[in-house]
Nucleic acid binder design. Structure first.
Length: 354
DNA sequence: CAGTCGTGGGC
DNA sequence: TGCCCAAGACT
């Protein structure tokens, strides 16, 4: 190990002391972090931007200030509060984790990384992050930021994701004995603000003198990445049924899988070979085409045809469905794709009225 | 281990 | 418009 690499952590921590981000879930320097807040923020931040998380974090903390409160809440309330943030299995696991913490750990977070790892929704990254940040344990934290910083620091030729298994060892080479929590957060802050995916600000980087990719003049070309697969397209239909009294028909999706446990409008299955003229459902009448919406999921793109229909006052909900009043709809656990469909239906209805 | 699992912003 | 991506977990 080169001596310059051993000094990297000192430079990084000095930089962190001056330039650390002030984030809602982050404790002030010298203050004890709240493990509950650390855990909550880390789960929300999985594959999710700081900007998107901030408001949800505040909302959850206001609704459920302590893990006991979250554990006592109905899971439907948690799903509803999570609606719009994506990756909904996180919300279900969050709730399950809270209940397990209360039932098996007296409402306290274990400090040990391996013990944390056993809890639902807590994987290798989150376990290490909680151990390091909340308890200042010497855990090696590797997230996407860290992978990028490390790949550039060593001009690592191994492409991601294959390089993932080398990462903990490489991080350990520069990890300091002291301040493991600050070191972890410093690496992530550096990746988020200086060592960015595009146009990294190497001129401002405290590690530029030790960076092999920088020496090659090719920081932006790291990390190497495996070619990605094309994203298939699917089509489907949404049947937005409005009753004469203004209530709207919805249902709840099965608890697991895509948008698991979230609410939706009735619709036809999403498939690549979707029929050009799908059958309208038996319930409802006067079905009218309200337009299409596009939505992109991680592993497929979706185009939905929106149909608006009417039902008479007092019409019963079909099997598995429920009527929601207008005010009730605002609080429903609708994922973003369904909010988009709802907006299209509203636009169509207001245009038809005019 | 490669596939599944959301969303919104930036360029 | 299309592509990239953002503090990954689970199977």
């Amino acid at each position: 190990m080169a001596k310059s690499k051993m000094q990297a952590s000192e430079k990084l921590l000095a930089w962190y002391d001056r330039h650390r981000r002030d984030l809602p879930w982050r404790a002030r320097p010298g203050q004890r972090p709240d493990p509950y807040a650390v855990w909550l923020s880390e789960v929300m931040l999985q594959q999710t931007t700081v900007a998107a998380v901030a408001a949800y974090f505040q909302k959850f903390l206001a609704l459920w200030p302590r893990v006991e409160n979250l554990a006592a809440a109905p899971v439907e309330a948690v799903m509803q509060a999570w609606a719009g943030l994506g990756y909904y299995s996180r919300a279900r696991n969050l709730h399950a984790c809270a209940q397990k913490l209360v039932a098996d750990h007296g409402g306290r977070f274990p400090e040990d990384e391996a013990e944390l790892r056993r809890l639902p929704g807590i994987g290798p990254y989150t376990a290490a992050a909680i151990a390091a940040i909340a308890f200042d344990r010497p855990a090696i934290v590797v997230d996407g930021n860290v992978e990028r910083v490390i790949a550039r620091l060593w001009a690592l030729e191994t492409p991601l994701p294959a390089a993932k298994k080398e990462m903990p060892g490489l991080v350990a080479e520069i990890a300091p004995r002291q301040r493991p929590g600050d070191f972890a957060q410093a690496m992530m802050d550096l990746g988020a603000t200086i060592c960015t995916p595009r146009r990294p600000a190497c001129v401002l980087c405290p590690l530029s003198g030790e960076c092999a990719a920088r020496k090659l003049g090719a920081a932006q070309d790291f990390p190497r990445k495996a070619a990605k697969k094309p994203r298939p397209s699917r089509r489907g239909a949404v049947f937005y049924l409005r009753r004469a009294d203004g209530a709207v028909l919805t249902r709840t999706r099965p608890p697991h899988g895509l948008l698991g446990g979230m609410e939706e409008f009735f619709g036809a299955d999403w498939r690549e070979d979707f029929p050009a003229n799908p059958d309208m459902p038996a319930f409802g009448a006067n079905w009218a085409f309200a337009g299409e919406i596009d939505h992109v999921f991680t592993h497929f793109a979706l185009k939905l045809s929106i149909f608006v229909g009417e039902a008479p006052r007092g019409a019963p909900a079909p099997e598995g469905g429920r009527w929601r009043g207008a005010a009730d709809m605002k609080a429903a656990a609708l994922p973003s794709v369904m909010r988009k469909a709802e907006a299209r239906a509203h636009k169509f209805l207001s245009a038809r009225l005019a």
